[in-house]
Nucleic acid binder design. Structure first.
Lengths: 336, 336
DNA sequence: TTGAAAGCGCTACCAT
DNA sequence: ATGGTAGCGCTTTCAA
């Protein structure tokens, strides 16, 4: 292992000059800088991360806590992990995985031992134990998602209320007057935290704009396909001409199949939009408009907040955006 | 942050005694050890990982390189990441994620900077660039999977040849004489490395035991369901009474559906076994016997090899095991 | 069985 | 603009 001493000797400067030439934290003559740079390359010098961490007081590692449950949706989850990793690397950080089922011990361990510079919290539950822990830890911690009690925490999330509202707007502007929201399993609206936010944003905005809006969660029994079809039929029976989907990729596909099986076309007979999905709705059998949950946006912001010493507590809601893939058409002219 | 100095002072011993009392690397009077232990707990002392890494020459971090492609199967992948993480923690290591699309720079970076004590390589391709890189790095590196040129490398993998053979044995012992293997997409047998191994193990053992064996990969066109059904029909047309499946969870489900749609029962009319799957075949609509690829076994071994300084290069093949879920029945008595 | 002290390889302060 | 050097908080050798 070639060290900074050898580089300094070979370049004919002091080790502090080598350090500063590489970090740029102190002005260095262009000539000196070039000589150091060249020597570094010639000798194949790579600064030792351990020494750097001890002396410089930062490891440039962020912990990512993601307690994996059996009901964790793997693809979605992986999207976020990947996005976090990309975002971190972009700012020169690496990601340390914390996958313990009960996250607290791992978090404390890496925090107290000074192994990481910050913590990213994934899969946030409303009553997440990591909330209290984060408040006690004295280490930059960013929640990707919002727990029930978020005071004093740094949280990043899609503005799900606005996302639900945006879907309504899209329908309303296309002239739809009777619209539906096909949601997650009914339990999710009690246990989880964003499904109700989408629902409320949807229903509230619909009321504001004078639309007739119907909400159907998935009923808890039968196969997924059956549940979805059941909810879909309930909405269609009420005369909706446009449906927003807030659930998973499988549910989206079942809806498209069921719609086709009923001889309906998208968007000719029924308009569709996906809300809060983190997969690519353009790749569905029928490309679907969406107000997506973009993992990369959440993670970019999260990493930035976690690595910026000026970060203050607070919830940062990411403004939703509409992505058009042609699954919304003008509503048929109503004769009512 | 309370440091080792404060602990030493409070316990009335030297810092080296504190260090040894905690590490056990030198005998310490029981009385002293207890006093140190108690002081540590009272003050809430946690050794500083950075200092420890610099002085002790190990970070207790393993890198996990997993270049995520678009065709990466998320659930399978996550199973391995989780298994690696669990295995690592069990030996007191953490996992650092390396997700860059081209893995080489990340691997070099963490290796040369001394950030990690070893590297685990996931998603190994036959012509994996990480093979040469690993040979050049001088850092314990374990491949979970076997690249084409594996000389000088440490590799861990399921013995796919034996797995294919074991499936044949299971069928043969139940009296089946004409059997089939329904595989991956045909390309996979050229591009990837384990599909051909399963195939060869299957066909060779069948020949050895005097069974008639048919192999059907998936043809490259049409929907997945169509491809699977096509291959299934081809096998049934040849009179097979037992079929081994070496492909993904979706394919397994399609096979079960198609079999049912033909009015056939499992295992009454046709026996089935899954080979090399890393999902739980007991949870399929019809629980299926399996010769599984157990991520935890591979990862446990991989972590052990990566952290043991006595590890020598070589390929470690994990012996396959048969898991019974009742999807193999005695063959109907043949009248031929 | 214990203590003193020399590193580990950097960063950053204090000089010049 | 550059050099010397005191730490960073441990582990481990050397002495006692």
């Amino acid at each position: 292992m070639v060290g900074i001493n050898e580089v300094a000797k070979a370049a004919g400067v002091s080790i502090s000059t080598v350090s500063y030439a590489l970090s740029g934290k102190r002005p260095v003559t262009e000539e000196t800088r070039r000589r150091v740079q060249e020597t570094v390359e010639r000798l194949g010098y790579t600064p030792n991360a351990r020494a750097r961490a001890l002396a410089g007081k930062q490891t440039r590692i962020l912990a990512l806590t993601e307690p994996l449950h059996e009901y964790t949706h793997a693809p979605t989850h992986m999207t976020f992990v990947l996005a976090a990793s990309v975002a971190a690397r972009r700012l020169g950080y690496d990601i340390l995985l914390l996958t313990d089922e009960d996250a607290a011990p791992g978090m404390s361990r890496v925090a107290l031992s000074g192994l990481v510079d910050g913590i990213l919290v994934l899969d946030v539950a409303p009553d997440d134990v990591r909330a209290d822990l984060a408040r006690s830890l004295d280490l930059p911690t960013v929640f990707i998602g919002v727990p029930e009690s978020s005071e004093g925490l740094v949280c990043v999330d899609l503005d799900f209320v606005a996302a639900g509202a945006l879907a309504v707007d899209a329908f309303a502007e296309a002239g739809h007057r009777t619209i539906g929201l096909l949601g997650h399993a009914a339990d999710a609206y009690e246990v989880s935290n964003f499904p109700p936010r989408v629902r409320d944003g949807f229903l509230t905005r619909a009321q504001e704009r004078g639309l007739e809006a119907h909400f159907e969660p998935l009923s808890g029994d039968g196969s997924l396909a059956l549940q979805v079809v059941h909810a879909l039929d309930a909405l269609l029976a009420r005369g909706v001409t446009a449906i927003a989907l807030h659930n998973g990729e499988d549910e989206h596909e079942v809806v498209l199949e069921a719609v086709a099986r009923r001889g309906l076309t998208v968007p000719g007979d029924v308009s569709l939009i996906s809300v809060g999905a983190s997969f690519d709705t353009a790749r569905l059998p029928v490309p679907m408009d969406a107000v997506p949950l973009v993992a990369q946006r959440s993670c970019d912001l999260a990493v930035e907040l976690a690595t910026d010493s000026a970060t203050r507590p607070g919830v940062r809601l990411i403004a939703p955006e509409l992505v058009d893939h042609g699954s919304i058409a003008q509503a048929p002219v109503a004769d009512g």
